[in-house]
């Protein structure tokens, strides 16, 4: 079997099972699966059965103009060495997603981080509590409409130094 054939076979296999799904292989050992929100759990299960045993990371992109969050699940296979990205888009106004813990247990921490940084609710994740931030009261900091400079000015810069305080 030629090297390119594995990606091609996998592509055809996914397309034959799932509807509304785009699969492409931009280069060797890469696989991009763009699917809809409802199907993502099945796609992940399907890929896990095909040797993608490891969930490397979950990342999130804030497409503020389209009013969408894009979630990207990075899977990797130790057998074929292929890196698969499963992408889906969810609504920005009401960001709710099904938790991936039943498929990959280690998704729990990744989902917790995305919940903290983007405010995406993961249904079924039992531990959505702050991870890095301490007593955060503002909107989640990785959203595009969060003004970091303004926040820094308002929080840290207004505190006077000791000399300023003593000199009035």
């Amino acid at each position: 079997m030629k090297i390119m054939d594995r990606e091609e076979n996998l592509r055809e296999e996914i397309l034959s099972v799932f509807k509304n799904t785009e699969v492409s292989s931009p280069k060797r050992k890469r696989l991009t699966v763009i699917t809809e929100k409802a199907l993502i759990s099945e796609v992940m299960k399907f890929l896990k059965d095909r040797g993608f045993k490891q969930l490397c990371a979950i990342s999130c992109i804030d497409w503020i103009e389209e009013k969408e969050f894009e979630l990207i699940y990075h899977l990797s296979s130790f057998e074929s060495g292929i890196h698969a990205m499963v992408k889906t888009k969810i609504d920005r106004e009401n960001p709710v997603m099904k938790s991936m813990i039943p498929v990959f247990t280690n998704a729990q921490t990744y989902e917790r981080e995305i919940w903290e940084m983007f405010g995406v609710q993961f249904e079924g994740n039992p531990r959505l509590i702050p991870l890095f931030l301490d007593r955060w009261r503002d909107i989640p900091p990785f959203r595009k409409d969060f003004d970091i400079r303004e926040y820094v000015k308002r929080t840290f810069d207004v505190i006077p130094s000791l000399e300023e305080k003593q000199n009035g």
Binding site: L133, I148, V152, F156, I159, S161, L162
Partner: peptide
């Protein structure tokens, strides 16, 4: 990290 949302900018405002 001068414009980071989560980093203390000047430590000597909190301890000498």
């Amino acid at each position: 990290y001068w414009d980071s949302y989560n980093t203390i900018k000047r430590v000597d405002k909190y301890i000498p």
